[in-house]
Design a protein around this nucleic acid. Sequence first.
DNA 1: TTGGATGCAAAAGTTTTGCACGGTT
DNA 2: AACCGTGCAAAACTTTTGCATCCAA
Lengths: 142, 142
Amino acid sequence: MEKAELNKEIRASGLKSTKSRCAILDILKQNDRPASADEVYMELKSRGISLNISTVYRTLDAMTEKNLVKKLSITGESKALFELNAIGHKHYLVCLGCRKTMAIEGCPLESFERELAEETDFVIEGHKLDIYGYCPECRNKT
Amino acid sequence: MEKAELNKEIRASGLKSTKSRCAILDILKQNDRPASADEVYMELKSRGISLNISTVYRTLDAMTEKNLVKKLSITGESKALFELNAIGHKHYLVCLGCRKTMAIEGCPLESFERELAEETDFVIEGHKLDIYGYCPECRNKT
DNA sequence: TTGGATGCAAAAGTTTTGCACGGTT
DNA sequence: AACCGTGCAAAACTTTTGCATCCAA
């Protein structure tokens, strides 16, 4: 993505735009699966951008706060993961063998959420759904 | 629950039965929502049972291994949570205001999982679904 | 008796924070 | 110029591990 657009998007969220922040957002945009702070840090390094890990955490937190980014916890992962807060939302199919994750198309929960809101009187803001199993390569190993 | 039954259940899982393990399982049985290792530790303390926190972790891990217990990660929680691995499975409605969690009845995903298995050739083992929102008490505060 | 369970202390791993300095607006 | 972002180092917090001792089978 062009630098100018990243700049614009970051400022639109209310954050000050910096080289570091553009780079981090760019990485998340190119990633099709959630990344840990450390993975982002490594990718920055491999692109020749040397940031401190605490800056990466602070940036990801700030972007989460501004809804540019979503922070996830996946069962079995000890670290928090971050992904772009794209329009709509994603669910993941996670392989318990190799821990590969792939995005799932579609979401089966809209009507369920409406019913739930009525029953409980909650204001539903969102949900998190991950599905676990074994991928074609791992299904025969166990 | 009577001590004898807890004993039996633990041994049936393949674990050696000890006073600590009975106490931990008993706590999880009485909890209607997932607890962190530290919460279990505190509850033990308040019952006059003094265990080391590392024992609590080891016990919870062992019980997870034996499928007596399930380990969860909930978005926004920095710690892992543990709950009884009851027959069937549960989903939670989590309040983003006060972080109260309540179990949801029913699961809207069975048919979705079957379709997904066909499409992806994964063996689906399970899933994790949490729904987020604001409870009646918190919905007006923000 | 024997192997596994536990306590203790220390380490490991992730995330946060204080402070001084530097860059963006 | 003012304020916020960043680097660095240290701390905080959760979880794991090694080893000696203790307990259930």
